[in-house]
Structures are given as C-alpha cells and as structure tokens.
C-alpha cells in the first residue's frame, strides 16, 4: 500500500516534469558548437588553457547565456529569429566588452543565410558606440536577407548591452 503510493507520486512528478519540459525548450550547445567556440577562443586570446564559467547572477538575461573566459574576456551565446526559425550564434568580447568575434553556429532557414558570412560579420568588430542608431548604420545590409540582418543587429546589440550592464555592476 505504502510503496504503491510512492510509485503514484513518482509517476505524477514525472508526468508533471515532462509537461513542463514540453513547454520550455532551451537550446543545448552541441559538442560541435563548443568545438567552434573553443577554436575561436584559442585563436583570439592565444590561449591553451581556459575555462568558460557561466555568469548567472544577473537578471534580465532572457535567452542569453554569458560566460567568463579566464580573466581575458567574455562569451555570449544566444538564439535570434530569422524569417521563420531561429538561428544560434555566439559573440566573444574583450574584458572591456568590445566585440572581438561574432559567428553563426547554425542557420535553420533557406533564406537569409548570407548573414553567416564571416567577412560580413567582421563589420561588427570595429564598432565602438553607445548608440544603437550608429551601431545599426555601421552594418551594411544584404539584399534578400533583410530580416536576418536586422535580427542579428538587434540581438547582438541587446546581448552587448546585457554584458555592459554586468560590467558596470562589477
């Protein structure tokens, strides 16, 4: 009698857990994603040994995940919408919060994938501004990829602001 009760309870909790999981889908970075991020980190900071320690004690992070890279810089990962789906990308920042690299990890739509172009993404590295308008104007548009271009500009700006807010608190 007693054990049956426990099974019931366990089953209820399991069902409830599944129920919640089906509502919240958090993107899990794959091994391949991490390999790319590590490769870039090595190249940028000229590091052999490094760790990514996640920064969680800030509010309003939303879907953004922030990591500290040793004492050298920061990594941010996020998803942003294209026309229909979401794409995954990351940014590596200097310790001052300047963009050193931005790369799209996965692009899940046939239209607009031009934003994955590394040479186009290099434009983000040179910008040093506190105005979104200037930031927006510093990036060349791509015809046929307008939605994704706007999306990565807006999303990377928000991510940068989140990191800057954290750096000011420190």
């Amino acid at each position: 009698m007693h054990s049956k009760n426990n099974i019931n309870k366990a089953a209820t909790i399991l069902v409830a857990a599944l129920f919640f999981l089906s509502f919240t889908t958090v993107y899990v970075l794959s091994v391949r994603d991490w390999e790319k991020i590590e490769k870039s980190t090595k190249a940028i900071f000229n590091l052999v040994d490094f760790t990514f320690s996640e920064i969680k004690n800030i509010s309003n992070l939303g879907s953004t995940r922030l990591y500290k890279i040793n004492n050298m810089g920061y990594l941010a990962f996020d998803q942003a919408p294209s026309k229909f789906h979401k794409f995954e990308y990351y940014i590596i920042f200097s310790d001052k919060g300047n963009i050193l690299k931005i790369e799209v990890l996965n692009y899940n739509e046939n239209y607009g994938s031009e934003i994955c172009n590394q040479r186009w993404l290099k434009q983000f590295q040179k910008i040093n501004t506190s105005s979104f308008l200037t930031y927006n104007n510093s990036i060349d548009g791509i015809s046929g990829a307008t939605l994704s271009v706007q999306s990565i500009i807006a999303n990377s700006w928000q991510v940068t602001q989140k990191l800057h807010a954290y750096l000011q608190l420190k």
């Binding site: 799209v104 990890l105 996965n106 692009y107 046939n110 994938s113 994955c116 172009n117 590394q118």
Partner: peptide, 13 residues
C-alpha cells in the same frame, strides 16, 4: 533536402 554549409558559405537544395 535543403542544407546549408556555413563553413563554405553555401546553400544547396
């Protein structure tokens, strides 16, 4: 089948 290779800056279908 539609695929994208970010490394090669190419899409295929």
């Amino acid at each position: 089948v539609r695929g994208r290779s970010i490394e090669h800056s190419a899409n295929y279908q």
